[in-house]
Computed example of a mutant assay.
Amino acid sequence: MRRRTFLRTVSAGLGAAAFSGAVWHDAVAATSARAASVTAGESPYGPLGAADGNGVALPAGFSSRVVARSGRSVGGTIWHPAPDGGACFADGSGWIYVSNSEVPLVGGASAIRFAADGSIDRAYRILSGTNLNCAGGRTPWNTWLSCEEIFRGKVYETDPYGTRAAQQRPAMGKFKHEAAACDPDRAAIYLTEDESDGCFYRFTPNVWGDLSSGRLDVLCGIGGDSVEWRPVPDPTPGVLGRQTRHQVSAARHFNGGEGCYYAGGICYFTAKGDRKVWAYDTTRQTVTSVYDGGGTLDGVDNITGLPPGDLYVAEDGGNMEINIITFDGVVAPVLRLDGQSGSEITGPAFSPDGTRLYFSSQRGTSGESLGTGGITYEVTGPFRR
């Protein structure tokens, strides 16, 4: 593990108050010389203990439970295979956890509703008949963007509450989609692309809250860490058309774009091929690395965060951990799944009150390629918030 230069932001989720991008940039500059040569310290939660009965190694004071298994009934519905990206939504005194299904042809997404005491109230499908739904993102108006990770993949806007039909959003581009993160401060949505030369995109709807039309831009390098946005000429190319990542020559490329998370003027995104966590500073218009590999955090994938400015990064492979990157630069594991080396951790998301962390092991202990052994977990404990 290594200590990395990192921002101390304050964020309570979408639309929350946080330090500005300028403060982030100044904080990085002030601490880089100190942090760059220091190896990681302890996790704020302490060391991991032995794996519990669910195979989850946790710090003292934390506990786990299995809330769903692929192919088995939960809350009156059969839980989908290969659970992937996820998010939580408040619902009265309870809450909802939404999860994608990264399988071909049937894909889609499902939801579990939890009552106020944490018991499972019901579960239901919110999207069906799509293809390899990988990650996505929640919106400030409480919808879930489910993204297809296929050639000419699309974004579907879904209803976590299960009352409205899902809507295809082609204006957000047709490419190998991965994750999405909403920026309510600039009325924009950032999108990652899972290609070895993938790009980082920004979708600006014509009307904030209506994703049926808008402009798709691609991030372009203009020297050093400085970047700018340029329009993608054809966001919805046909089968023989030029792919979006090849339409603008100045586009900046990232090796295997994965998770994406916005907080306080910064959009953090991961690239598994680069083994980096990147930060796009919306004020300074720069892209810098806040974690560049090494240590126990490997196979960087889905990413989320909590108000103190901590990030939580799930591993695709590695030693099957979720690592915290604290606001003062410590990288350390907060949980590990034992005996699941053939899987990956997906869909980390916190309950609205920040006390419960949901995530999945996409292929579980079986490692079966279609994810029929997928397991969805809940971890409860004194998370910093």
Rank of each mutant, 00 (worst) to 15 (best):
R4L: 04
R8C: 05
R8P: 06
V10Y: 12
S11P: 05
S11K: 03
A12H: 10
G21H: 03
A27W: 12
A29V: 00
R34K: 14
R34L: 15
V38E: 15
V38H: 08
T39C: 01
E42G: 11
P44Y: 04
G49K: 01
A51M: 11
D52Q: 06
A57W: 11
R72I: 00
S73N: 13
G75K: 10
I78C: 03
I78Q: 08
P83K: 10
G92M: 12
I96R: 15
R113I: 05
F114S: 05
D117L: 09
L127T: 06
S128Q: 13
L132Q: 05
G136H: 04
W141R: 10
G153I: 07
T158E: 06
D159M: 06
G162S: 04
A165H: 08
A166G: 13
M172H: 06
F175E: 04
A180Q: 09
I189P: 08
T192A: 00
C199L: 01
C199G: 15
T204Y: 02
P205L: 12
N206H: 10
S212M: 00
S213K: 05
R215T: 15
V218F: 02
G221A: 11
S226I: 00
E228I: 01
E228D: 00
R230M: 08
P235S: 12
T236I: 15
G241N: 14
R242N: 10
V248D: 07
A251Q: 08
N255D: 15
Y261V: 04
G265D: 02
T270F: 02
K272T: 14
G273C: 05
A279Y: 01
D281V: 00
R284H: 08
R284D: 02
G294T: 10
D298M: 09
L306Y: 09
P307G: 13
D316E: 03
D316C: 00
N319F: 09
F327H: 13
S341P: 01
G342L: 07
G342E: 09
G342V: 02
I345Q: 14
A349H: 05
Y358E: 09
Y358F: 15
S361T: 04
S366N: 06
G374A: 08
T376N: 11
Y377S: 07
V379W: 03
R384F: 02
